[in-house]
Computed example of a mutant assay.
Amino acid sequence: MDTNRKQTDMTGKKLRTPSYKYSFRLNEEQHLRFNELLTKAGSEHNRSRFIVKRIFGEEFVVVKRDPSKVQFVARLNDFYFQFQKLGNNCAPVKAI
């Protein structure tokens, strides 16, 4: 008997993991506080993950991107590629 079979049904499709949906209502004061917490956490785009992490007390990390750092990294990469081009152009000269 094969005990290492894949988790599929008779049609060969993967079985879905069960998921449960809950809903709740907030009054105006709670809604404002909830939006404030979302803004502080920086996760306005993913409310459901924020709620689940808060309910179960799990740690969540929000990565914020700074546009000035992105520009700095782009310039640094460009600088690196200029040195690489210089090395590639000098390699045939060394062979002579």
Rank of each mutant, 00 (worst) to 15 (best):
M1I: 12
M1L: 08
M1H: 11
D2I: 12
D2S: 13
T3V: 14
T3C: 08
N4E: 12
K6A: 15
T8P: 04
T8I: 09
D9M: 02
M10Y: 09
T11V: 03
G12C: 01
G12R: 03
K13D: 10
K13C: 00
L15S: 00
L15K: 15
R16G: 13
R16I: 13
T17P: 09
T17W: 01
P18C: 10
S19F: 05
Y20A: 12
Y20H: 15
Y20K: 15
Y20S: 08
K21E: 02
Y22G: 01
S23K: 03
S23F: 03
F24P: 01
R25M: 12
R25C: 09
E28I: 07
E29L: 08
E29Q: 13
Q30W: 00
H31L: 10
H31W: 07
L32Q: 11
F34P: 10
F34Y: 10
L38V: 03
L38K: 08
L38I: 01
L38R: 13
K40P: 04
A41Q: 07
A41N: 06
G42N: 03
G42L: 05
S43Y: 07
S43L: 12
S43M: 12
H45I: 03
N46A: 09
R47V: 13
R49T: 10
F50C: 02
I51G: 01
I51Y: 00
V52N: 14
K53M: 06
K53F: 05
R54I: 13
F56N: 12
G57D: 01
E58W: 04
E59W: 03
V62P: 01
K64N: 05
R65M: 03
R65W: 02
D66P: 02
S68W: 00
K69A: 09
K69P: 05
V70Y: 02
Q71K: 15
F72Y: 06
V73E: 05
R75I: 00
D78Q: 15
D78S: 11
F79W: 08
F79L: 07
Y80S: 06
Y80G: 04
F81T: 11
Q82K: 14
F83P: 00
F83G: 03
Q84I: 05
Q84V: 08
K85V: 02
K85R: 15
L86R: 05
L86S: 07
L86C: 02
L86A: 08
G87P: 02
N88A: 12
N88E: 09
N89V: 07
N89Y: 06
A91S: 08
I96L: 10
